[in-house]
Design a protein around this nucleic acid. Structure first.
Ligand SMILES: [Zn+2]
Ligand SMILES: [Zn+2]
Ligand SMILES: [Zn+2]
Ligand SMILES: [Zn+2]
Lengths: 174, 174
DNA sequence: GTCGGTGATGTTATGGTATAACCACAACAG
DNA sequence: CTGTTGTGGTTATACCATAACATCACCGAC
């Protein structure tokens, strides 16, 4: 058996998410220290907010939260922090949702493959070589030079598929 | 040899694009006739505009063109037409560009797999079973119930990869 | 020390994408 | 004729993202 390609699996309803968040921040701090990157207070806080759950977070939701904490927060505030975090692999953008999720394995650069639950909104991240290589090979078969892959699969996570009536612990409030 | 999985290949610099456009419109008219769908003047015109080239077209570019032809054109005008065309498979949305391309094989419903040239902006569409099945299998291996796939590959088309200095026949004017 | 460069953030404004809500009207079935 | 449905007009607003310039902290050169 090779290692699982699931690098951020769907979570059980009552997992200890504070440890997810803590681990992600610790990893980011470690990587920035080793690479000489500046994980400033703002960038650290935005990463922490993105890790408030396993659902993609929208930029203006982040902005609303920042406005409650920081004088003068504006769209560029959050987009610049997100740019930094994306550039160094700490968060991914979900193109089909215009929203952002934390990456659980930022150490190695990867495009990311995402399973997005339509019902509970949770996202799991794969880094499956079979998917990556198949896409790469079939694109090259058309003479195309591949530089990046966007792979976003929508559907139902195991829990929502099993019990469509179950509560949705992570659903956004509106 | 099985049939090629490329359903909308990259075009040569000087292909007869008016026949691409004409064929796409004829196919759409035929399908709508057989399915009892109403390809109205507006919808037909939007489809024609989307087929102005092989590059994704933005909704507000369509709107600008409609405004020159039609009194009272507004965002809902174009988005409603695009909704119809997407729903019935005549156009696809490129999520990573927020733009729309015509589909050359609208007969069978498919998510579409897109090769997007960063340089000339042209898009080729694949409908590769190997990609589709690999994504399906690997997602199911995580217990995920797949409902839709977004596959968008960015890079360089054969012509741009071969000659990075060549002119870009389809580039948008600004 | 202070000068100047660099990178991060503040600040204002704008551009780009998409939908809500309500209205008018045509086509059609009962 | 009348109610229903589908299409598009119209107005307004929400949501997503960047441009451009100002300010400030930091740090090394001198
Ligand atoms: Zn968690
Ligand atoms: Zn779910
Ligand atoms: Zn063509
Ligand atoms: Zn190209």
């Amino acid at each position: 058996m090779s290692r699982s390609s699931v690098i951020a699996p769907f979570q059980t309803e009552r997992h200890d998410h504070s440890s997810c968040r803590r681990d992600a921040l610790a990893r980011a701090e470690d990587i920035c220290l080793r690479k000489g990157l500046r994980l400033t207070e703002l960038r650290r806080r935005v990463l922490e907010l993105v890790w408030s759950g396993h659902e993609p977070v929208r930029a203006y939701d982040l902005l609303d939260q920042l406005r409650g904490e920081r004088r003068g927060a504006a769209p560029p505030t959050v987009y610049r922090a997100l740019d930094f975090l994306q550039e160094h692999g700490f968060v991914h953008k979900i193109e089909s949702l215009n929203a952002y999720v934390g990456c659980a394995e930022p150490a190695d650069r990867h495009g990311g493959q995402f399973l997005i639950c339509r019902r509970c909104k949770a996202v799991a991240e794969l880094d499956d070589p079979a998917i990556h290589d198949t896409v790469q090979r079939r694109a090259e078969a058309s003479g195309f030079l591949v530089q990046g892959q966007v792979i976003e699969v929508t559907g139902l996570c195991p829990r929502c598929a099993a019990d469509p009536a179950a509560p949705q612990p992570h659903a956004h409030e509106h």
